[in-house]
Simulated scan of single mutants.
Amino acid sequence: MHETKIPFGERDGILFRAHEVENGLRCGCVCPGCQQPLNAANNGEKVIPHFRHAKSNDCFDGFREGVRRAAVALIAQHKQLMLPALIETVRVATQGGRLLEKKIELQPVVTTADSVERFVDLDGLRCHAVLHQSDRQLIIRIKLSARTEYERYRQLEALEHSSMEIALHNLTLEQINDPASFERAVLYDPATRRWIRSMRGEKLMAIVGEKLESLASELNAQWHFEQLKREVAEKARQLALDEEKAKLQLALDEHRAHQLQKASEQPPIDQDNTVKGRAALIAGTMLKAVQAWGAKAIECSACHLLSPPESQFCLYCDSQTSKVNQVVLSPDIIWTLGKRMRCSAKPEMSVKAAPQLIVRPDIELV
Protein backbone atom coordinates (compact mmCIF):
# COMPACT_ATOMS: atom_id res chain seq x y z
CA MET A 1 0.00 0.00 0.00
CA HIS A 2 1.28 3.46 -0.88
CA GLU A 3 0.48 5.46 2.22
CA THR A 4 0.61 8.84 0.47
CA LYS A 5 -2.66 7.82 -1.19
CA ILE A 6 -5.22 8.27 1.56
CA PRO A 7 -8.44 6.24 1.02
CA PHE A 8 -10.64 8.18 3.48
CA GLY A 9 -11.13 11.90 4.07
CA GLU A 10 -12.88 13.35 7.10
CA ARG A 11 -15.63 16.00 6.97
CA ASP A 12 -17.72 16.97 9.97
CA GLY A 13 -16.51 13.86 11.80
CA ILE A 14 -17.64 11.52 9.02
CA LEU A 15 -15.31 9.50 6.75
CA PHE A 16 -15.80 9.61 2.97
CA ARG A 17 -14.12 7.80 0.10
CA ALA A 18 -12.72 10.03 -2.65
CA HIS A 19 -15.36 8.98 -5.18
CA GLU A 20 -18.09 10.05 -2.74
CA VAL A 21 -17.10 13.74 -2.69
CA GLU A 22 -16.26 16.51 -5.19
CA ASN A 23 -12.88 16.62 -6.84
CA GLY A 24 -9.91 18.63 -5.53
CA LEU A 25 -10.18 21.00 -2.58
CA ARG A 26 -13.92 21.25 -3.15
CA CYS A 27 -14.21 17.94 -1.27
CA GLY A 28 -13.89 19.92 1.95
CA CYS A 29 -12.14 17.01 3.70
CA VAL A 30 -9.24 16.92 6.11
CA CYS A 31 -6.73 14.15 6.85
CA PRO A 32 -7.93 11.69 9.54
CA GLY A 33 -4.40 11.70 10.91
CA CYS A 34 -3.11 15.29 10.95
CA GLN A 35 -6.42 17.15 10.30
CA GLN A 36 -4.84 19.12 7.40
CA PRO A 37 -6.82 19.83 4.16
CA LEU A 38 -6.96 17.14 1.50
CA ASN A 39 -7.28 17.09 -2.29
CA ALA A 40 -9.65 14.50 -3.70
CA ALA A 41 -8.35 12.77 -6.84
CA ASN A 42 -11.41 11.11 -8.34
CA ASN A 43 -11.51 12.17 -11.99
CA GLY A 44 -8.65 10.04 -13.32
CA GLU A 45 -9.40 7.10 -15.55
CA LYS A 46 -6.18 5.19 -14.70
CA VAL A 47 -5.79 6.18 -11.06
CA ILE A 48 -7.89 4.70 -8.25
CA PRO A 49 -9.76 7.48 -6.44
CA HIS A 50 -7.90 8.66 -3.34
CA PHE A 51 -6.98 11.71 -1.28
CA ARG A 52 -3.68 13.59 -1.06
CA HIS A 53 -2.54 16.29 1.32
CA ALA A 54 -3.18 19.71 -0.17
CA LYS A 55 0.24 20.79 1.09
CA SER A 56 3.23 18.49 1.34
CA ASN A 57 3.97 17.43 4.90
CA ASP A 58 5.43 14.53 6.89
CA CYS A 59 2.10 12.95 7.81
CA PHE A 60 1.90 9.20 7.34
CA ASP A 61 -0.99 8.63 9.75
CA GLY A 62 -3.78 9.58 7.34
CA PHE A 63 -3.85 6.21 5.62
CA ARG A 64 -3.76 4.08 8.80
CA GLU A 65 -6.01 6.29 10.89
CA GLY A 66 -8.63 6.51 8.14
CA VAL A 67 -8.71 2.77 7.46
CA ARG A 68 -8.71 1.95 11.17
CA ARG A 69 -11.58 4.32 11.96
CA ALA A 70 -13.55 3.06 8.97
CA ALA A 71 -13.08 -0.52 10.11
CA VAL A 72 -14.14 0.26 13.68
CA ALA A 73 -17.19 2.14 12.35
CA LEU A 74 -18.24 -0.97 10.41
CA ILE A 75 -17.93 -3.14 13.52
CA ALA A 76 -19.93 -0.66 15.59
CA GLN A 77 -22.59 -0.40 12.85
CA HIS A 78 -23.12 -4.15 12.39
CA LYS A 79 -22.29 -5.21 15.96
CA GLN A 80 -21.06 -8.51 14.63
CA LEU A 81 -18.01 -10.11 13.09
CA MET A 82 -16.49 -13.47 12.33
CA LEU A 83 -14.36 -14.92 15.14
CA PRO A 84 -11.09 -16.53 14.06
CA ALA A 85 -10.46 -20.25 13.95
CA LEU A 86 -8.43 -21.71 16.77
CA ILE A 87 -6.24 -24.78 16.44
CA GLU A 88 -4.11 -25.78 19.42
CA THR A 89 -2.54 -29.01 20.61
CA VAL A 90 -2.34 -29.93 24.28
CA ARG A 91 0.64 -32.14 25.12
CA VAL A 92 1.50 -34.00 28.31
CA ALA A 93 4.61 -36.16 28.66
CA THR A 94 4.60 -39.29 30.81
CA GLN A 95 7.53 -40.45 32.91
CA GLY A 96 7.90 -43.39 30.58
CA GLY A 97 8.70 -41.06 27.67
CA ARG A 98 5.29 -41.25 26.00
CA LEU A 99 3.78 -38.01 24.68
CA LEU A 100 0.01 -37.66 25.05
CA GLU A 101 -1.56 -35.24 22.55
CA LYS A 102 -5.04 -33.86 21.95
CA LYS A 103 -5.93 -31.31 19.29
CA ILE A 104 -8.40 -28.52 20.09
CA GLU A 105 -10.10 -26.92 17.10
CA LEU A 106 -12.64 -24.09 17.08
CA GLN A 107 -14.18 -23.24 13.72
CA PRO A 108 -14.69 -19.61 12.61
CA VAL A 109 -18.10 -18.41 13.78
CA VAL A 110 -20.02 -15.13 13.56
CA THR A 111 -20.70 -13.50 16.93
CA THR A 112 -23.15 -10.68 17.62
CA ALA A 113 -22.46 -8.08 20.31
CA ASP A 114 -24.93 -6.30 22.57
CA SER A 115 -22.88 -3.11 22.20
CA VAL A 116 -19.60 -1.86 20.79
CA GLU A 117 -17.24 0.70 22.32
CA ARG A 118 -14.80 2.52 20.05
CA PHE A 119 -11.18 3.31 20.94
CA VAL A 120 -11.16 2.36 24.61
CA ASP A 121 -8.20 2.63 26.99
CA LEU A 122 -7.78 -0.46 29.22
CA ASP A 123 -4.94 -0.36 31.71
CA GLY A 124 -3.11 2.18 29.56
CA LEU A 125 -3.57 0.12 26.39
CA ARG A 126 -5.55 1.55 23.47
CA CYS A 127 -8.13 -0.94 22.24
CA HIS A 128 -9.59 -0.06 18.85
CA ALA A 129 -12.95 -1.65 19.68
CA VAL A 130 -14.49 -3.57 22.56
CA LEU A 131 -17.49 -5.85 21.92
CA HIS A 132 -19.75 -6.45 24.92
CA GLN A 133 -21.87 -9.58 25.10
CA SER A 134 -23.58 -10.35 28.44
CA ASP A 135 -20.73 -10.36 30.97
CA ARG A 136 -18.03 -10.98 28.37
CA GLN A 137 -15.79 -8.60 26.46
CA LEU A 138 -13.90 -9.04 23.22
CA ILE A 139 -11.05 -6.66 22.48
CA ILE A 140 -10.31 -5.84 18.83
CA ARG A 141 -7.00 -4.59 17.41
CA ILE A 142 -6.89 -3.36 13.81
CA LYS A 143 -3.46 -4.11 12.38
CA LEU A 144 -2.22 -1.82 9.61
CA SER A 145 1.49 -2.61 9.67
CA ALA A 146 3.48 -5.72 8.80
CA ARG A 147 5.51 -5.16 11.95
CA THR A 148 4.79 -7.56 14.83
CA GLU A 149 3.88 -5.65 17.99
CA TYR A 150 5.22 -8.04 20.63
CA GLU A 151 4.83 -5.64 23.55
CA ARG A 152 1.18 -4.89 22.70
CA TYR A 153 0.46 -8.60 22.37
CA ARG A 154 2.05 -9.21 25.75
CA GLN A 155 -0.11 -6.50 27.31
CA LEU A 156 -3.28 -7.86 25.70
CA GLU A 157 -2.47 -11.40 26.80
CA ALA A 158 -2.17 -10.11 30.38
CA LEU A 159 -5.79 -8.86 30.33
CA GLU A 160 -8.50 -11.27 31.48
CA HIS A 161 -10.48 -10.81 28.27
CA SER A 162 -10.50 -12.44 24.87
CA SER A 163 -8.72 -10.40 22.23
CA MET A 164 -8.24 -10.72 18.50
CA GLU A 165 -6.47 -8.95 15.69
CA ILE A 166 -7.88 -7.98 12.28
CA ALA A 167 -5.02 -7.51 9.85
CA LEU A 168 -5.79 -5.05 7.05
CA HIS A 169 -2.25 -4.08 6.07
CA ASN A 170 -2.32 -6.31 2.97
CA LEU A 171 -5.48 -4.74 1.50
CA THR A 172 -5.04 -2.89 -1.76
CA LEU A 173 -6.46 0.57 -2.40
CA GLU A 174 -8.96 -1.07 -4.77
CA GLN A 175 -10.23 -3.38 -2.00
CA ILE A 176 -10.54 -0.49 0.45
CA ASN A 177 -12.42 1.63 -2.10
CA ASP A 178 -14.90 -1.18 -2.73
CA PRO A 179 -17.37 -1.09 0.23
CA ALA A 180 -18.32 -4.76 -0.16
CA SER A 181 -14.71 -5.99 -0.28
CA PHE A 182 -13.73 -3.76 2.63
CA GLU A 183 -16.70 -4.90 4.72
CA ARG A 184 -15.91 -8.57 4.08
CA ALA A 185 -12.24 -8.05 5.02
CA VAL A 186 -13.19 -6.30 8.26
CA LEU A 187 -16.14 -8.39 9.38
CA TYR A 188 -16.03 -11.85 7.84
CA ASP A 189 -12.83 -12.87 6.05
CA PRO A 190 -11.17 -15.70 8.09
CA ALA A 191 -7.82 -14.88 6.48
CA THR A 192 -7.62 -11.41 8.05
CA ARG A 193 -8.10 -12.37 11.69
CA ARG A 194 -6.41 -14.33 14.43
CA TRP A 195 -6.70 -14.74 18.17
CA ILE A 196 -4.37 -12.90 20.51
CA ARG A 197 -6.06 -14.52 23.49
CA SER A 198 -9.11 -16.79 23.52
CA MET A 199 -10.64 -17.34 26.94
CA ARG A 200 -12.87 -20.10 25.57
CA GLY A 201 -9.90 -21.78 23.95
CA GLU A 202 -7.96 -21.59 27.21
CA LYS A 203 -10.83 -23.18 29.14
CA LEU A 204 -11.05 -26.01 26.61
CA MET A 205 -7.28 -26.49 26.79
CA ALA A 206 -7.47 -26.59 30.59
CA ILE A 207 -10.21 -29.25 30.50
CA VAL A 208 -8.32 -31.34 27.96
CA GLY A 209 -5.09 -30.80 29.91
CA GLU A 210 -6.72 -32.12 33.10
CA LYS A 211 -7.93 -35.23 31.27
CA LEU A 212 -4.49 -35.84 29.78
CA GLU A 213 -2.85 -35.29 33.17
CA SER A 214 -5.23 -37.83 34.70
CA LEU A 215 -4.40 -40.34 31.97
CA ALA A 216 -0.71 -39.56 32.40
CA SER A 217 -0.99 -40.25 36.15
CA GLU A 218 -2.48 -43.68 35.42
CA LEU A 219 0.23 -44.43 32.89
CA ASN A 220 2.90 -43.16 35.29
CA ALA A 221 1.62 -45.46 38.05
CA GLN A 222 1.66 -48.39 35.64
CA TRP A 223 5.13 -47.39 34.46
CA HIS A 224 6.41 -47.23 38.06
CA PHE A 225 4.97 -50.68 38.72
CA GLU A 226 6.61 -52.09 35.58
CA GLN A 227 9.83 -50.27 36.45
CA LEU A 228 9.81 -51.84 39.91
CA LYS A 229 9.29 -55.27 38.35
CA ARG A 230 12.17 -54.62 35.96
CA GLU A 231 14.41 -53.50 38.83
CA VAL A 232 13.54 -56.61 40.88
CA ALA A 233 14.18 -58.84 37.85
CA GLU A 234 17.44 -57.05 37.13
CA LYS A 235 18.59 -57.47 40.74
CA ALA A 236 17.70 -61.16 40.60
CA ARG A 237 19.56 -61.51 37.30
CA GLN A 238 22.58 -59.70 38.70
CA LEU A 239 22.57 -61.90 41.82
CA ALA A 240 22.42 -64.98 39.62
CA LEU A 241 25.30 -63.66 37.52
CA ASP A 242 27.31 -62.88 40.65
CA GLU A 243 26.64 -66.37 42.03
CA GLU A 244 27.60 -67.92 38.70
CA LYS A 245 30.73 -65.78 38.59
CA ALA A 246 31.64 -66.78 42.13
CA LYS A 247 31.09 -70.47 41.31
CA LEU A 248 33.19 -70.10 38.18
CA GLN A 249 35.97 -68.38 40.10
CA LEU A 250 35.90 -71.08 42.78
CA ALA A 251 36.04 -73.77 40.10
CA LEU A 252 38.91 -71.94 38.41
CA ASP A 253 40.80 -71.65 41.69
CA GLU A 254 40.35 -75.37 42.30
CA HIS A 255 41.44 -76.05 38.72
CA ARG A 256 44.60 -73.96 39.13
CA ALA A 257 45.41 -75.81 42.36
CA HIS A 258 44.87 -79.11 40.56
CA GLN A 259 47.15 -77.93 37.72
CA LEU A 260 49.92 -77.03 40.16
CA GLN A 261 49.49 -80.36 41.95
CA LYS A 262 49.70 -82.27 38.70
CA ALA A 263 52.65 -80.19 37.52
CA SER A 264 54.49 -81.02 40.76
CA GLU A 265 53.96 -84.73 40.13
CA GLN A 266 55.46 -84.60 36.63
CA PRO A 267 59.19 -85.25 36.27
CA PRO A 268 61.21 -82.08 35.67
CA ILE A 269 61.79 -81.97 31.93
CA ASP A 270 62.65 -78.84 29.96
CA GLN A 271 59.72 -77.83 27.78
CA ASP A 272 60.23 -77.48 24.06
CA ASN A 273 58.50 -74.12 23.59
CA THR A 274 59.39 -73.76 19.97
CA VAL A 275 56.73 -73.63 17.28
CA LYS A 276 57.75 -77.11 16.17
CA GLY A 277 57.57 -78.47 19.69
CA ARG A 278 54.18 -76.88 20.29
CA ALA A 279 52.90 -78.33 17.00
CA ALA A 280 53.86 -81.80 18.22
CA LEU A 281 51.94 -81.23 21.47
CA ILE A 282 48.81 -80.00 19.66
CA ALA A 283 48.93 -82.95 17.28
CA GLY A 284 49.44 -85.33 20.21
CA THR A 285 46.30 -84.06 22.00
CA MET A 286 44.33 -84.40 18.77
CA LEU A 287 45.51 -87.99 18.42
CA LYS A 288 44.52 -88.74 22.01
CA ALA A 289 41.10 -87.19 21.43
CA VAL A 290 40.47 -89.61 18.58
CA GLN A 291 41.87 -92.64 20.37
CA ALA A 292 40.71 -92.08 23.95
CA TRP A 293 37.92 -89.48 24.01
CA GLY A 294 35.70 -90.63 21.18
CA ALA A 295 36.98 -87.91 18.80
CA LYS A 296 35.44 -85.25 21.09
CA ALA A 297 37.35 -82.65 23.09
CA ILE A 298 37.53 -79.03 24.14
CA GLU A 299 40.08 -76.76 22.50
CA CYS A 300 41.81 -73.90 24.37
CA SER A 301 41.61 -70.62 22.50
CA ALA A 302 45.04 -69.64 23.84
CA CYS A 303 47.34 -72.67 23.59
CA HIS A 304 45.13 -74.68 21.17
CA LEU A 305 45.77 -77.93 23.04
CA LEU A 306 42.83 -80.32 23.41
CA SER A 307 41.50 -81.41 26.79
CA PRO A 308 38.93 -84.16 27.59
CA PRO A 309 35.39 -83.20 26.52
CA GLU A 310 34.11 -82.97 30.12
CA SER A 311 36.78 -80.40 31.08
CA GLN A 312 35.66 -76.95 32.14
CA PHE A 313 39.06 -75.31 31.69
CA CYS A 314 42.23 -75.91 29.73
CA LEU A 315 44.34 -78.53 31.54
CA TYR A 316 47.66 -77.20 30.34
CA CYS A 317 47.96 -73.39 30.33
CA ASP A 318 46.88 -70.59 32.65
CA SER A 319 46.41 -67.86 30.04
CA GLN A 320 44.05 -65.10 31.18
CA THR A 321 42.52 -65.04 27.71
CA SER A 322 41.89 -68.77 27.61
CA LYS A 323 38.43 -69.94 26.62
CA VAL A 324 37.40 -73.48 25.72
CA ASN A 325 35.27 -74.54 22.77
CA GLN A 326 33.74 -77.92 22.01
CA VAL A 327 35.24 -79.67 18.95
CA VAL A 328 34.54 -82.93 17.16
CA LEU A 329 37.36 -84.49 15.14
CA SER A 330 37.20 -86.77 12.13
CA PRO A 331 38.55 -90.26 12.97
CA ASP A 332 40.78 -90.26 9.89
CA ILE A 333 42.55 -87.09 11.03
CA ILE A 334 45.32 -89.23 12.54
CA TRP A 335 46.71 -89.91 9.04
CA THR A 336 47.16 -86.22 8.23
CA LEU A 337 48.21 -84.69 11.57
CA GLY A 338 51.75 -83.97 10.49
CA LYS A 339 50.73 -82.20 7.29
CA ARG A 340 47.98 -80.29 9.12
CA MET A 341 50.41 -78.90 11.67
CA ARG A 342 52.91 -77.82 9.01
CA CYS A 343 50.32 -75.63 7.29
CA SER A 344 48.48 -74.44 10.44
CA ALA A 345 49.03 -71.14 12.23
CA LYS A 346 47.90 -72.61 15.55
CA PRO A 347 51.37 -73.69 16.80
CA GLU A 348 52.77 -70.17 16.38
CA MET A 349 49.67 -68.63 17.94
CA SER A 350 49.92 -71.08 20.83
CA VAL A 351 53.50 -70.10 21.64
CA LYS A 352 52.62 -66.41 21.58
CA ALA A 353 49.49 -66.72 23.76
CA ALA A 354 50.89 -69.30 26.22
CA PRO A 355 54.70 -69.31 26.11
CA GLN A 356 54.92 -71.60 29.16
CA LEU A 357 52.60 -74.54 29.87
CA ILE A 358 51.75 -75.35 33.50
CA VAL A 359 51.07 -79.03 32.80
CA ARG A 360 52.63 -81.09 30.04
CA PRO A 361 50.11 -83.23 28.12
CA ASP A 362 50.33 -86.96 28.84
CA ILE A 363 50.43 -87.98 25.20
CA GLU A 364 52.41 -89.71 22.52
CA LEU A 365 54.22 -87.10 20.43
CA VAL A 366 53.48 -87.22 16.73
Rank of each mutant, 00 (worst) to 15 (best):
L241P: 01
A246R: 10
R230K: 12
A236N: 03
E213G: 01
E174W: 00
E213S: 13
Q238F: 06
A221Y: 05
E231R: 15
I176T: 09
A206F: 05
E210R: 14
F182S: 00
E174G: 01
Q238C: 10
S198L: 02
A236K: 10
E244F: 13
S181F: 00
F225G: 10
L239V: 07
A236H: 05
L212Y: 08
D178V: 01
V208G: 05
P179K: 03
Q227F: 08
E202V: 13
R230L: 11
A185P: 05
W195R: 14
N177P: 04
N170C: 02
N177M: 00
V186G: 02
T192I: 08
P190A: 12
F182V: 00
L212C: 06
R200G: 15
Q238I: 07
I196K: 04
L187I: 09
L204D: 08
A216S: 12
A233Y: 06
T172M: 00
N170F: 01
R230Q: 09
E183I: 11
K229V: 13
I196R: 03
R197W: 02
L239E: 15
E226I: 15
I207W: 05
E210M: 14
I196C: 03
Q175N: 04
L171S: 12
V208D: 04
R200H: 13
A240S: 06
E213H: 02
F225N: 12
E226M: 14
E218L: 15
A246T: 04
E210G: 01
V208R: 07
N177T: 02
I207M: 11
E243M: 14
R193C: 11
L239S: 10
Q222K: 13
A221R: 10
L212R: 03
Y188N: 15
L187M: 14
E234D: 12
R194W: 13
N220D: 15
S217L: 04
W195V: 06
A236Y: 03
S198R: 10
A240T: 08
L171G: 09
R230T: 07
M205V: 01
D178W: 01
E244N: 08
R193H: 06
S214R: 15
E183G: 12
A236V: 08
D189A: 15
E243D: 03
W223G: 11
W223F: 15
V208K: 07
N177F: 00
R193G: 09
S181W: 00
L241F: 05
L239R: 13
N177Y: 01
E231N: 07
M199L: 15
G209A: 08
A185K: 04
A191W: 14
H224Q: 14
L173S: 05
E231A: 11
A185M: 09
G201N: 06
A206T: 09
E234Q: 12
M199G: 09
A216Q: 10
Q175M: 04
W223Y: 14
K203P: 01
L173G: 03
E183Q: 14
E244Q: 03
K203G: 02
W195K: 12
K229D: 10
L204G: 07
P179R: 01
L239N: 11
R230E: 08
W195T: 14
L241N: 11
T192M: 14
L173M: 04
